[in-house]
């Protein structure tokens, strides 16, 4: 039997139409990136026409709405780095321990129960974590650390560390489980304990995958907004002291967006200048993480 000519023509037409639509859908993701870069660059052009790049990068004050305005982005970066650093300090040891436990120790049933629970942790809206940090976790910390301010970087950093834990742990665990079992068996055949196999064989073999997990986790911590906007305060403060409050890049953007800034004001443009810094930092981490992960996948 032969399909009718007209049907085949129609089929070819629909096929190319559908293919075209799918291509447009795939290309849309590229347009999103282009749009982001375009907006960040054009909107901050006016800003960099007035503020020298050197001042932007070296000044340690950020006072955009003052009479004598200063735009030292390092003020915001210092808080961003401090909070993300605390998050990583919590997340690296905890995530690694959890990943080793899940990949090397836990039985399959345990793993399959634990992973969905971790995913639930990831599903909590960040504004809820912000509320929790400000009104529950910080007061709790204050009973141990008397000098802790109501807005501080320690609490948000620690909560964020747990918040990114499901992500870092599951990415590292995937990397560890991708290590061929032959390598593990070689270790066991030498009489290694599980712990030794984990530390001497699996972790080194999965190193680039694990590194990728923490770099991507770092990128998330840097870009996280609501927890810091609520609980770390909105006062630009060049400080690496975790007991003080300070505005991160993201908190600054939120703060400015809540006020009604005129479109062409320098304060409005400064939001996009801060956005560029944030975008470049996270882009760098994301790309490093992407290529580390990809290289890891190629090896195994």
């Amino acid at each position: 039997m032969r399909a009718s000519e007209s049907f085949l023509r129609r089929r070819a037409l629909w096929g190319s139409f559908a293919g075209g639509c799918l291509l447009i859908a795939a290309a849309s993701s590229v347009f999103v990136t282009l749009g982001i870069v375009y907006v960040l660059v054009t909107e901050s052009m006016g800003f960099f026409a007035q503020i020298a790049l050197l001042d932007f990068l070296t000044d340690t004050q950020w006072t955009p709405v003052f009479e004598n305005a200063h735009f030292g982005v390092m003020t915001l970066v210092s808080a961003t780095v401090t909070v993300a650093g605390i998050a990583l300090a919590v997340s690296i040891p905890a995530g690694l321990a959890l990943a080793i436990y899940l990949s090397e120790y836990a039985r399959r049933e345990v793993r399959e129960t634990v992973k969905p629970c971790l995913e639930l942790l990831e599903g909590v809206p960040t504004v809820v974590y912000g509320y929790f940090t400000l009104l529950f976790f910080t007061p709790l910390l204050q009973t141990f650390i008397p000098g802790l301010e109501g807005f501080n970087m320690l609490g948000p950093g620690m909560v964020m560390g747990i918040m990114i834990l499901p992500y870092t742990a599951s990415v590292s665990e995937d990397a560890m489980r991708a290590v061929p079992s032959g390598l593990r068996e070689a270790g066991y055949a030498l009489g290694y304990s599980r712990f030794r196999v984990a530390m001497r064989v699996v972790v080194p073999a999965a190193f680039s995958g694990i590194t990728a997990a923490f770099i991507l986790g770092m990128s998330r911590a840097v870009g996280e907004t609501m927890v810091v906007a609520i609980a770390a305060g909105q006062n630009p403060n060049f400080s690496f002291n975790p007991t003080e409050g300070a505005a991160t890049i993201t908190a600054y953007i939120v703060q400015m967006a809540m006020g009604d800034l005129p479109h062409d004001s320098i304060a409005y443009q400064s939001v996009f200048a801060a956005g560029i810094v944030l975008f470049v930092i996270t882009l760098t981490f994301n790309l490093i993480g992407f290529f580390l992960r990809r290289r890891f996948k190629e090896v195994y």
Binding site: S29, V32, T33, I36, V39, L40, E43, L216, S219, R220, V222, G223, E224, T225, T250, I253, V254, A257, V271, F272, G275, L278, F279, T282, L283, F285, N286, L287, G289, F290
Partner: peptide
């Protein structure tokens, strides 16, 4: 990379 762009950048 888009998956890792902070949500606030989408806001911008």
């Amino acid at each position: 990379n888009l998956a890792g762009v902070p949500s606030i950048i989408y806001g911008l």
